[in-house]
């Protein structure tokens, strides 16, 4: 086996030379994952901010019944509402993800070294929607006095499913590929959240007031998408000039 791999590497090198000569396959070269020419370059960068709204009658949040696990029930004195659709004033839509879906070309970005934390607290996920980078470390913490199982259901990454009893140290995982991954706890069927994985840093999750901010975006033409777990995806195209600040508004219709 070892000899085969070595042979392969020799072959790859030969092929690289060939490819470069043909001027093709740059993308493939990058995919090999060693080169990272385009670092995050903040000079002349633009800023894209805006708001995501929900038009039409405001939905009524449904109540979650945690009776199946008394440990969960005991933690809440007030009723717990589903976080599937959360709105603020004037139709501001919380927990929409705004991100650049196209236009970054061949730029590659190294993932941040600091981890992101996805917490199970009060038998819900905190945050409800987590944004993170591909290959960034994800820490899953259980702050509850009951056992959860953290079960992401990805399409492009491989699925895993880990039980996490109370008091155990955080689980460390990562996802290699970009995608928005639903996360469930099978023990507590009401527990649903999302982990959005991006290979670039240009994404934001709207806060209660529906606003978002994408900073340090290199000038260029982009396709911007907004994703919401219930209302789907909206798309806009923008051109960002050097040092420009632009605002965008996304409106989901019920």
């Amino acid at each position: 086996m070892r000899t085969r791999i070595n042979y392969l590497q020799i072959g790859v090198t030969a092929a690289l030379v060939l490819l470069t000569a043909h001027g093709a396959g740059t993308r493939t070269l990058r995919a090999i994952g060693t080169s990272s020419e385009a670092r995050e370059d903040t000079s002349g960068a633009a800023t894209l901010s805006g708001i995501v709204k929900l038009e039409g009658s405001q939905p009524v949040a449904t109540r979650i019944n945690m009776a199946a696990d008394p440990a969960c029930l005991k933690m809440h004195s007030a009723p717990v509402m589903s976080e599937e659709v959360a709105t603020g004033t004037n139709g501001a839509l919380k927990d929409a993800i705004v991100y650049i879906s196209d236009g970054l070309g061949n730029r590659t970005f190294d993932p941040p070294t600091e981890p992101v934390v996805f917490e199970q607290k009060g038998c819900t996920y905190n945050p409800h929607i987590l944004g993170m980078r591909a290959r960034q470390t994800l820490k899953v913490a259980n702050s509850d006095p009951t056992t959860h199982n953290i079960h992401p259901a990805p399409q492009n990454n491989r699925e895993w499913n880990l039980s996490q009893p109370p008091g155990s140290s955080p689980i460390e995982e990562s996802f290699a590929r970009e995608e928005i991954i639903p996360v469930k706890c099978n023990v507590h069927p009401w527990m649903k959240g999302y982990i959005a994985v991006f290979k670039h840093p240009y994404f934001a999750i709207t806060s209660k007031d529906g606003t978002f901010d994408l900073r340090n975006v290199p000038p260029g033409e982009y396709t911007i998408e907004t994703w919401h777990e219930k209302y789907g995806v909206l798309t806009q195209k923008v051109t960002l000039e050097t040092n420009q600040t632009r605002t965008l508004e996304f409106v989901f219709k019920r």
């Binding site: 392969l8 590497q9 072959g11 790859v12 092929a15 060939l18 490819l19 493939t28």
Partner: peptide
């Protein structure tokens, strides 16, 4: 992270075939 090396090999295979460096078929 741990899988990078293998992915590199895979990409290498693609490149290899794409570049037509012999009709190597990997069993």
């Amino acid at each position: 992270m741990k899988h990078n090396r293998m992915r590199a090999h895979f990409a290498g295979i693609l490149v290899l075939l794409f570049a037509g460096v012999g009709q190597v078929t990997f069993a």
